[in-house]
């Protein structure tokens, strides 16, 4: 469990992880040395600091979410872990309404592409892994991203 001050500092890092320790100190009225020690302790719950990108503005307008199950799970996992288009990958189990599938999904991932040709090419490559079941959702718009325990009015560097 995080303390009240740890949560306060974390909320600032969630909102802008490039914020300096002195800026966090100013906003929280805690000393810089206290902030320094809190940030060090938060290392146990922070996996990494990352800049979230607008992929569309970088020339990658297609973001697709997939859920897959496959006979060839291990090879599929290796393929997805190493594929440059895969932004995020989780192992999952699925439930539809109130019942579990007999063959639950194995993986849920987010993939980024320049165009539909790249997307179709990627889907063709997936076929060799003996896909049992697949769901696919094109992301039309990001409405909220990594806001859990962030400041209420999330600061975005984007115009």
């Amino acid at each position: 469990m995080l303390s009240k001050n740890e949560l306060r500092v974390l909320s600032h890092l969630r909102t802008n992880s490039r914020m300096t320790l002195s800026e966090i100190a100013y906003r929280t009225s805690l000393s810089v040395s206290n902030i320094h020690s809190i940030v060090k302790k938060l290392g146990r719950v922070v996996e990494k600091h990352v800049s979230l990108l607008d992929f569309q503005s970088l020339g990658f307008p297609l973001k697709v979410h997939f859920a897959l199950s496959a006979y060839n799970k291990k090879a599929l996992k290796y393929f997805l872990l190493n594929h440059s288009s895969i932004n995020s990958l989780s192992s999952v189990m699925a439930k539809m309404n109130d019942s579990y599938f007999d063959n639950p999904y194995d993986y849920y991932f987010e993939a980024i592409f320049k165009n539909f040709v790249e997307l179709e090419d990627f889907k063709k490559r997936l076929e060799i892994y003996d896909i049992i079941k697949s769901d696919e959702h094109l992301v039309v718009e990001d409405l909220k991203k990594e806001e859990f325990k962030a400041q209420k009015a999330s600061m975005s560097t984007k115009k």
Partner: peptide, 17 residues
């Protein structure tokens, strides 16, 4: 940066929280 960076954040290990 404003053209392509949405925000700088940290990814959490939710289970450890």
């Amino acid at each position: 940066a404003e053209d392509f960076i949405v925000k700088h954040t940290c990814l959490l290990d939710f289970s450890k929280m």
